[in-house]
Amino acid sequence: MKTLIIYTHPNHQSLCYSFLQNVIKGCNENTNIKELQVLDLYEEGFNPLLVFNENKRRRDMHRDPDLEKYRKQILWADQLVLVYPIWWGRPPAMLLGYIDQMFASNFAYKDKKGLLPMGLLKGKSVVCISTMKGPAKYPLLWLNNAHKILMKRALFQFVGINKVKFFEFGKMESPNGKQKKKLEKVYQYFKKIESKQVLLS
């Protein structure tokens, strides 16, 4: 299994970065994960801004040469792992800018007759690992599960990816947030995960 980790946090001293390190550690100890790549969007200097003009048209975004490297990474991977904080009930603008550009028509999906398009990224799996200051139930009880609906239904299922697992960790700025226990949980998950086996949540 080939795994691409997409990390989105500007501070390498953050708890998010500790989760990234535990994902990497678990993957490196898992014999089912043969190859691993890490894309740190902030360190990479990824430009999240959409530009549409006479030289860059939206319909051509799937073949934009500036994004070729990132398209190849997504096609290469069997498993995508996203590590990011929840800010204002959703992922950071940097990650959303990456999504806007990478999951483009004729690369991630193809329009066809009917309500839904043809997903072009079938067979892949996704794990979303997110941290937040508020309680773990906040997105479910206060925001009607908006985070999971955004990532799972509006994005990944739209492009043909049905295997999506979430780790939503709340109270991450609290002294009683059980940070070490949650870090260990992520490490053990990636240490033991079998090829293309992502439990839905």
Rank of each mutant, 00 (worst) to 15 (best):
V126Q: 03
V81K: 11
L141A: 04
Y84N: 07
L140R: 15
F158H: 15
S18R: 15
W142K: 11
P117I: 06
D64H: 08
G123W: 07
L121K: 08
K110P: 00
E168R: 12
F166H: 13
L121Q: 06
G26H: 14
S18Y: 08
A104L: 04
Y187M: 02
I24T: 13
G89M: 00
M118R: 15
F169R: 02
P91G: 04
K148G: 01
K133D: 15
D111V: 05
N53A: 10
M61A: 06
Y109R: 10
K163M: 02
L200T: 12
Y138T: 14
Y17T: 01
K196P: 02
R58D: 06
K72I: 14
F52C: 06
Q188V: 10
S18F: 05
Y42N: 10
M94L: 11
I149P: 03
I161W: 03
Y138V: 06
R58L: 12
V198N: 09
Q21F: 02
D66A: 15
L120D: 06
Q188Y: 13
A136L: 04
Y17M: 02
L116H: 10
K112F: 03
S18L: 11
F19P: 00
I33M: 07
I24F: 04
Y17N: 10
L49W: 10
G177T: 02
I161P: 00
R90E: 07
Y84V: 01
Q179V: 13
K124R: 14
Y109D: 01
G160T: 02
S201C: 14
L143S: 11
F169L: 15
G114W: 08
N144I: 04
S125I: 04
I193T: 14
N30W: 01
F19Y: 15
I5Q: 01
F169V: 04
Q197H: 12
N28I: 03
G177H: 10
L67K: 03
S195Q: 11
P175C: 03
Q101G: 07
G26T: 06
K178F: 09
E44G: 05
K148S: 12
K178R: 15
G177Q: 01
Y109C: 00
L96M: 14
V38F: 09
L200C: 08
K163I: 08
E54I: 06
Y17G: 00
G97D: 11
Q101H: 12
E44V: 02
Y109S: 08
D111I: 04
E184W: 08
F167P: 14
L80F: 12
S14W: 05
K110L: 04
V164I: 12
S130A: 15
M102W: 06
D60T: 11
K178Y: 11
A108Y: 02
V23Q: 02
F52N: 07
K110S: 08
K182D: 01
L155D: 00
N30F: 07
D60Y: 13
Q188S: 11
I33V: 12
V51G: 00
K192H: 13
K191G: 00
R57D: 11
K185H: 09
W76E: 03
W87S: 02
M61H: 06
K110A: 10
F46Y: 15
V159R: 00
L150K: 05
L67S: 01
R63T: 10
G26C: 10
N145K: 14
R63K: 15
E43W: 09
